[in-house]
Design a protein around this nucleic acid. Structure first.
Lengths: 108, 108
DNA sequence: ATTATATATAACCAAAAGGTTATACGTTGG
DNA sequence: CCAACGTATAACCTTTTGGTTATATATAAT
């Protein structure tokens, strides 16, 4: 199974995703948007490529990266499903206090 | 803000969460369900506590852990929001298959 | 052809993550 | 009180992660 949690688990990668949500970008453009080096960005891109959340098209000397929306959708669906399952079981009582915006027991 | 991705990023933690979905458990019970040491489990519990995904109530020498459903609800909402934004931006048709739970074009 | 530009990769490093064992602490039962 | 049990913490180890710099490769432009 692909480890979607790994791909989304890093803030830089999530920011890249958010950027690519707006428009496709070359690696150079992405690099310029961050304060870290080109190889560092490339590694993040490689992770996202491995998980198939983005893909790249070659354009001369450029690599144009774009979101794989369906895969990103799957990734989030999987997470939502995980959480959702947890919530379903006790959703009735949860709904109640969520709406009231109050906790039932103390916190550390 | 809490980093839900960090918390969910580890398989052991996800399993703990799944277990706590069924019922609250003492640390001892949780430890016995895994093949790793008590301190290792404790570290995972600490991560989940930090992210406020679980909470613990003291009962004598026991610590009873239980899910913080409202926090999971928040995580769920956050993720939905992220995806929703994504869909709004680019792809109305994607919304369709998300709701129907099926793809519209082939995938690797 | 040579140079400039965009990307890829190699080698390295520090810090974080996930585990271990040993041990201290807190509570309860005999 | 003391022993046993559940939990917490300290010290340590290894692997992974996220970063670095230096350099190689591929395409474009002059």
């Amino acid at each position: 199974m692909s480890d979607i949690y790994r791909a989304l688990g890093d803030a830089t990668r999530r920011r890249i995703i958010t950027m690519l949500k707006e428009r496709s970008m070359t690696q150079k453009e992405i690099v310029e948007a961050f304060d870290i080096s080109q190889p560092a960005i490339k590694k993040h891109l490689n992770v996202l490529l491995e998980e198939k959340i983005i893909s790249a098209t070659v354009q001369g000397k450029y690599r144009l990266y774009n979101l794989n929306l369906d895969m990103l959708q799957r990734a989030y669906n999987e997470m939502l499903h995980f959480i959702g399952e947890l919530l379903d079981d006790q959703l009735a009582s949860l709904k109640n206090y969520v709406e009231k915006g109050e906790m039932q027991d103390g916190e550390s």
